[in-house]
Design a protein around this nucleic acid. Structure first.
Lengths: 210, 210
DNA sequence: CCAGATATTGCACAAACGTATAGTTTGTTA
DNA sequence: TAACAAACTATACGTTTGTGCAATATCTGG
């Protein structure tokens, strides 16, 4: 924990850290982790609800400020957007907080969905994906799917052996099967030659192991 | 609330009802809604955790006992399974409780996923759906998508104008757009003539309105 | 009708919760 | 360096939490 930050920032980070760890942040646990007194919460944030709100807004602003120059695939990847937000805790924090619908959370979801729509449109323009009738709704729906699996990360871990909150998402055991299924499920959205190309890449990456 | 039930059942139903309403069940709110004293919780369930566990198991058993003779479409419909469990509160309860991974919840998820795989296989056998390489994983993934949108029901309501916990799911405003997008997203899984048929049905159902 | 078990109540207790408040330290500016 | 504001601490208060425990009511089999 960065102890050179202001106490206000430390309180905020401590709360985010607790939420990300799946523990319920209370005034005392937060103050203890931030190594300040409980009274300071009131001084800086008024109430505990105010502190949580500030955390939501901080996470949302991290995601908002993501530079959109990352590697893009044929299917809009919400997780890439979130992980690109820099801080490791973003995914874990949202995994626990996304069920609450605060103003900041709602705005974040809206923005991720809008990003997905833009990526998707670019993929269509680039000839990678097939056009869909209602792109906005489709992007919203696929965003909900992605965020839903994030919220259900415990079940995803259990059923597919993927810890989606892990820093090294690429090295998760079940990821290969996951990607294969993604292509099965959403393959109809892509141009046939794109599917073929990606499938070949997947098989080539696995052959050396056998 | 059925007051002719045993106090034990009333406590359980009161807890389920509170969870379904999105309120945090405490010993006193539960006892009040069940119209019994707080001490009875300890007598019947030991602790509050025991009560919650009993609720999970009750809901899981409701879903488990669903008779599998309902109408089936070309895509496995998890929601149909859950709603067929009889009690209206099943969907709302799970919407709030699915993020916790108790033994009963895990078993329920497993079973819903297994059901989805069986339905899907039947759709393939019936020539409605295309075969997929890894049916079990695909069914698990699509189950997580469905349950994920259930957990994110507030966002689904906001983004697509669908209250997935409503008793009359068929009459939700955004449902038509939702179904259309479903076919866009998962259309690749279905035989082309099936897609054509359903699309025609959708358009025919809407034309009279215009 | 009468034990004996089971169901049920009412209350009390300690712990944890958010928050308020008074006082102290630290920093800034004139 | 005096003065004022901001940051910060320490502590206490009122509530709500889950749970334990003794007393009472209700049911059940002989």
């Amino acid at each position: 924990m960065n102890s050179d930050l202001t106490a206000r920032a430390r309180l905020r980070d401590a709360t985010i850290s607790l939420v990300a760890d799946g523990e319920t942040p209370t005034a005392r646990t937060v103050a203890a982790r931030a190594d300040v007194s409980v009274g300071l919460i009131r001084h800086h944030f008024g109430t505990m609800a105010g502190l949580l709100e500030a955390c939501d807004e901080h996470i949302a602003s991290l995601v908002r400020d993501v530079k959109h120059d990352q590697i893009r695939g044929p299917i809009p990847n919400v997780f890439a957007t979130l992980q690109a937000a820099g801080e490791q805790r973003v995914m874990s924090y949202l995994a626990h907080r996304l069920t609450e619908s605060s103003q900041a959370i709602d705005a974040l979801v809206d923005q991720v969905a809008a990003d997905a729509a833009r990526y998707w449109q670019e993929a269509i323009d680039a000839g990678l994906a097939r056009p869909v009738a209602d792109l906005v709704t489709a992007a919203r729906m696929s965003t909900l799917y992605a965020l839903g699996t994030l919220v259900l990360h415990k079940q995803l871990q259990r059923l597919l052996d993927i810890d989606i909150t892990a820093p090294d998402l690429a090295s998760q055991p079940g990821l290969a099967a996951y990607i294969r299924v993604q292509f099965d499920l959403f393959g109809g959205l892509l141009k046939p030659d794109v599917v073929e190309q990606y499938t070949a890449q997947l098989q080539a990456a696995e052959t050396p192991k056998e």
